[in-house]
């Protein structure tokens, strides 16, 4: 029971915190705003009443962008698209933050611009300046120029009304003059009525202009949306084409590398075979040389033996020839000795 109550209390506290939203922040208008990309702090927007910009480039794809006050309260943010860009205007207490996030094939970028909220007179002045400058070609947003046109129309309406009221007030405040003799055409109400009618007509015309301006803005916004869609489509097509080109290049490279590898392998095989054959040949030559040497030795030895044998044979021949003569004499001697021994 205790556990259930504890959990219910906690759940209620969290719900209240979520409902309170940005009101939970205790930060003032002079405090900076932290910018987080993929839940990592990347910088500060430190406007303090003037326009401030923060540009961030990342190597990784961007998932989310968050704006937080110095006390950590989530003020705004957006999820980044898979490819292409997305913008969002986040109105805060005293400023508006314009976020623009874009993802490429590799990495992404974030731009955060803080615009201080202008006062009424500032807005009116900007509207007038904007209309005055509208003749000069400038790369401004369509929606922005539309808003200026509306503001200008509102200012004109306000000026017209102020003029009307001032005219009436002046009429009432002015001391009554003695009646002058006038003709029927110079009746006292004739002139103001004409002016009122004229002003009325002007007001109608201004309202018509305003309606037309609103229509134009809507058309321009539709055009912008279509343009954005087309750009996103174009961007994704471009990405696809780029990735296809990359794939083809990679395949070509792989094939080239593959062909090169085959040739290398064949060459290596042939070379190794040739090397082996060469080694075998060298070994055989070596063994032949060795055998040749051995044979030469043996031959020389045989030659020497032969020489010796020849010498021996010669000497033996000489001995034999020497020995033949005494031998012929010897038997006689023997015969002589034998005869001597016989009595």
């Amino acid at each position: 029971m205790e556990r259930e109550r504890d959990l219910t209390d906690y759940r209620d506290r969290l719900l209240n915190a979520v409902k309170a939203g940005t009101r939970r922040s205790a930060c003032g208008t002079s405090d900076s705003i932290q910018v987080f990309v993929n839940q990592r702090r990347v910088g500060l927007l430190d406007g303090k009443g003037v326009e401030a910009t923060l540009q961030v480039q990342t190597d990784v794809r961007i998932d989310s962008v968050q704006l937080r006050s110095e006390d950590g309260v989530l003020l705004g943010g957006l999820f980044a698209p898979e490819y292409g860009f997305r913008t969002s205007r986040i109105p805060l207490l005293r400023e508006t933050i314009e976020l623009r996030v874009q993802n490429y094939a590799q990495g992404g970028s974030v731009s955060a611009v803080s615009f201080p909220a202008p006062s009424f007179w500032h807005r009116a002045r900007r509207a007038l300046v904007g209309v005055a400058d509208s003749t000069a070609p400038r790369p401004v947003a369509f929606a922005g120029s539309g808003m200026r046109a509306i503001a200008f129309t509102q200012v004109l309406l306000a000026v017209a009304l102020v003029g009307l009221v001032a005219d009436r007030t002046t009429g009432w405040m002015t001391p009554v003059r003695p009646p002058l003799p006038v003709t029927q055409t110079e009746a006292p109400w004739a002139a103001p009525l004409a002016e009122v009618t004229k002003l009325g007509q002007q007001l109608v015309e201004l309202s018509r202009m305003q309606a037309k301006a609103v229509e134009t803005i809507q058309t321009q916004q539709q055009g912008m949306a279509q343009l954005q869609r087309t750009m996103a489509k174009l961007s994704s097509t471009q990405e696809t084409v780029a990735s296809s080109v990359l794939t083809v290049k990679q395949e070509m490279e792989q094939r080239r590398k593959g062909a090169g590898r085959d040739a290398d392998r064949v060459t290596r095989v042939i070379m190794s075979k040739a090397h082996n054959a060469q080694e075998q040949l060298e070994a055989e030559i070596h063994s032949l040389t060795v055998a040749n040497d051995r044979l030469s030795n043996e031959l020389s030895q045989l030659d020497q033996n032969n020489q010796e044998l020849k010498k021996r044979l010669k000497s033996a021949g000489v001995d034999v020839s020497k020995a033949t003569i005494p031998d012929r004499e010897k038997p006689i001697v023997a015969q002589q000795s034998d005869t001597a021994q016989l009595p």
Binding site: S64, Q66, L74, G76, L78, F79, S88
Partner: peptide, 9 residues
């Protein structure tokens, strides 16, 4: 909280 803030986009 994230859904409330960024879901609008």
């Amino acid at each position: 909280e994230q859904f409330l803030v960024a879901g609008r986009s």
